[in-house]
Design a protein around this nucleic acid. Structure first.
Length: 485
RNA sequence: CGAGAUGUAGUGUAACGGUAGCAUCCAUGCUUUGGGAGCAUGUAGUCAGAGUUCGAAUCUCUGCAUCUCGACCA
């Protein structure tokens, strides 16, 4: 039965992808616009996903020997100016504090757009010997970048992220570490977010301001556009030279440190939304969900309420003792005095992976109905098998979401060998693997003409002689082109 | 920041320059209940400021906000 009308109607993806995205955020109650333009209020439902991101990444970082710390949000302007490319890259988008304590400040303070400068200013005092290395620090923080145009989670003036900043004894070790973090992100996206990402190297024009080399995770959203969902930079000794991070090596020579920085922001939540959600609402991969299972009692007769709710709560308690994929199952029993149909819609909008329905007929037959959020499949399950079944289904949903996203990307990725093919593939919203002559001029020409950018030079891309689709010049490997969010 | 569009209860909409109305939400009560229920009562609104006018939600200007498309970006 079609509902007549209701709040939070979701625009179909096919009709208006952008509106659909905003509708999902409203329907799942993830975020609100703030009184400050371009900023976002992350509501409890949205923040719960972020907390899960923090939990999983912290565990991963610790296993790599990375320690958490916190540095100030305000950075003296002179520090930002130390590294030439860095200041050039960030100057247009920094917010500056000029007054405080009722007076004009002698030196303006910038609100961090990223923390390289303030962290490295003190790193130089922390590092004296090769024995102090590697220095592996991460911080969870907010940063501000004054962007022209914002969109919840994907691009907001203020956003939350983690930024890791390390110092190593040589370039090779730094590069290996930058790649190690890139793979950590890739695994996180695959194993937890159920988002398949392509890892690769950014072109010169797309790399981080001040970096030697930028590694990136690129994901395909359901509209075929790419989302840069995490990055890891090999900073070389650029910042070390600017901030005089020096140490005595084993040969007693004073040398500069070699650095990396790597980050993942609340944008990844936008990626999660755009990868898995459907026209009914948000879909949260079980391993990222703060509620895995919602039990909805069905009460046709008021007098049977007590009995049914008791049974529902009882099943809930049993289920909480169960695990799936080494996680505890988080269960919510929804005993609110509402029609069950309304509850179904609400939990679907919020993306809870599994719904269990229990009513008088179920109690009679000693069974319940288990419904999957990803496929909508309903199954009648005997109560004694419920724990095992739910555990299995959560596992299946986690796997299915990843597979579904991977199939989508695979089907929409093409190799092209001519400009005409390139243009038509782009119109079909594909990821395109094509030859490029390696020059910034050609890259810019392609961007200006089509809006497509080089997302990355994929790491698993094999060497292959070819001709640039734009200039016709020689190319040694294919690179990934796409339009980006 | 450039081009365009739109701003009316929490949400979605209506009102020729002339009493701001409807639906929904929310609150209360009753009846209901295997996919967004029904009835009754109640609360709640013209983005902000200026101008034109006897009279402005409506016309004009300015500002602000949101959306779309560019430029910028995690």
């Amino acid at each position: 039965m079609e509902p007549k009308n209701f709040e939070n109607k979701i625009t179909p993806r096919s009709e208006d992808y952008s509106q659909w995205y905003l509708d999902i955020i409203a329907a799942a109650d993830l975020a609100d616009y703030s009184p400050v333009k371009g900023c976002m209020i992350i509501k409890p439902n949205g923040y719960a996903i972020w907390e899960r991101v923090q939990e999983v990444l912290n565990k991963k970082f610790k296993s790599y020997g990375v320690k958490n710390a916190y540095f100030p949000m305000l950075i003296p302007e002179r520090l930002l100016k130390r590294e030439a490319q860095h200041v050039e890259g960030f100057a247009p988008e920094v917010a500056v504090v000029t007054h405080a304590g009722g007076a004009k400040l002698d030196e303006p303070l910038i609100v961090r757009p990223t923390s390289e400068t303030i962290m490295y200013e003190v790193y130089k005092d922390w590092i004296h010997s090769y024995r102090d290395l590697p220095l592996l620090i991460n911080q969870w923080a907010n940063v501000i970048r004054w962007e022209m145009k914002t969109k919840p989670f994907l691009r907001t003036t203020e956003f939350l992220w983690q930024e890791g900043h390390t110092v190593h004894k040589d370039l090779q070790e730094a590069d290996i570490f930058a790649q190690k973090m890139l793979h950590a992100y890739k695994e996180f996206f695959a194993d937890y977010m159920a988002i398949p990402v392509i890892i690769g190297v950014k072109s010169e024009s797309e790399k981080f301001a001040g970096a030697l080399k930028t590694y990136t995770c690129e994901a395909m959203m359901q509209d075929g556009k790419a989302l840069q969902i995490a990055t890891s930079h090999n900073l070389g000794d650029n910042f070390a030279r600017a901030f005089e991070i020096k140490f005595l090596n084993e040969e007693n020579n004073e040398v500069y440190g070699w650095q990396t920085s790597w980050g993942l922001s609340t944008r990844s939540i936008g990626g999660l939304i755009m990868t898995h959600s459907d026209d009914k609402g948000l879909v949260v991969p079980p391993k990222m969900a703060s509620t895995h299972v919602v039990i909805v009692p069905i009460i046709p007769k008021p007098e049977s309420r007590g009995e049914i709710e008791t049974k529902a709560l009882e099943l809930g308690e049993l289920l909480k003792k169960e695990t799936f994929l080494d996680q505890d199952i988080l269960v919510h029993v929804d005993v609110r005095d509402m029609r069950h149909g309304e509850k179904y819609f609400e939990w679907e909008k919020k993306g809870v992976p599994v719904r269990i329905e229990i009513g008088p007929k179920d109690i009679e037959k000693n069974s319940v109905v288990v419904v999957r959020r990803d496929t909508g499949e309903k199954e009648i399950v005997a109560m004694e098998n419920l724990n095992a079944k739910v555990s299995e289904v959560l596992d299946l949903i986690q796997v299915n979401l990843y597979e579904r996203a991977l199939v989508m990307r695979t089907e929409n990725t093409v190799e092209v060998n001519s400009w005409d093919e390139f243009v038509s593939a782009l119109e079909d919203r594909k990821f395109i693997l094509a030859h490029w002559d390696g020059t910034a001029e050609t890259e810019k020409m392609i961007k200006d003409e089509t809006g497509a950018t080089i997302r990355c030079i994929p790491m698993d891309q094999k060497a292959e002689e070819g001709k640039c689709i734009k200039s016709g010049n020689a190319s040694k490997t294919r690179v990934l082109f796409a339009k980006a969010h």
